[in-house]
Design a protein around this nucleic acid. Structure first.
Ligand code: FES
Ligand code: FES
Lengths: 131, 131
DNA sequence: ACGAATGATACTATTATGGTATCATTATCT
DNA sequence: AGATAATGATACCATAATAGTATCATTCGT
């Protein structure tokens, strides 16, 4: 099992590069630097743009800049954007609302794990990874 | 994202039921109790048998008994059996051995998360869930 | 010998992941 | 104004993981 999928990871690397570069960064720059398949990276950046994490500029000389301060970009948010909500604890029997959930010993333990993971992922920001 | 897939979860429930029942338990008993699709459950039990977690008895009056003491059956082991190794931290760029791994700030943070999750999952045994 | 149970194994359906490909739009440079 | 260089929107495709089914072989108890 892995925690982070490729799109999340690529997004993180892309954002980090944009931060470090300060100026406008084009997809070509990113492909050169990160060696990520170009169309895939483009798709990822478009999502990041829609979510306000980067800002895009069209046309000649265009590209991407940061949309948020690096201390405000949390790995947890990237993960949620690309992988959906982090629900480590979800009853296999009843996807909606399990009636046993309040007494289910497993559920409560998984909940604790989930809380810890979320806390840790919240503590990881782009800023904290740069330096 | 979820931590536990169906087969792991079903396996856990099945084993718990076997523990509680003390005597021999057949697939039919389990299907009745857990409402899990029969052929799927059978496949799961065969794996558990091969791994020594349950013991199987063929023929009329056959079924399954526990192969290990409940305190010795860890959720972590079930998870590994059905979902493979728990590697929350695996570099997306180089699946084998990333040269940057020793200096990668993300890798070290994910490693900490992984350690914590593993520790917690080790603390969850069938015995601890029964009572 | 028969029936009731599991063992072994191969197949299938659905979803998630990791991408490609194409055309439209917009900004800049000449 | 028109060519060019960038992103936007969208639809498509390939592979792998998940969640099962289906079938036949084997073994044990009666
Ligand atoms: S059985 Fe549904 S939450 Fe545990
Ligand atoms: S870049 Fe490979 S371990 Fe972080």
């Amino acid at each position: 099992m892995k925690l982070i999928t490729r799109d999340t990871d690529y997004a993180l690397r892309a954002v980090c590069f944009i931060v470090k570069n300060k100026k406008m960064v084009s997809v070509s720059d990113l492909v050169r630097e990160l060696k990520i398949p170009r169309p895939f990276l483009r798709k990822i950046l478009q999502v990041l743009n829609k979510k306000g994490i980067v800002r895009s500029f069209k046309g000649r000389g265009g590209g991407f800049t940061l949309g948020l301060r690096p201390e405000k970009i949390y790995l947890l948010d990237l993960l949620r954007i690309f992988q959906g909500p982090l629900k480590l604890n979800e009853c296999t029997l009843n996807k909606k609302k399990c009636p046993k959930i309040s007494v289910c010993p497993l559920s409560s333990k998984l909940n604790n794990i989930e809380k810890h993971v979320i806390k840790e992922l919240k503590s990881i920001t782009v800023a904290s990874l740069i330096k």
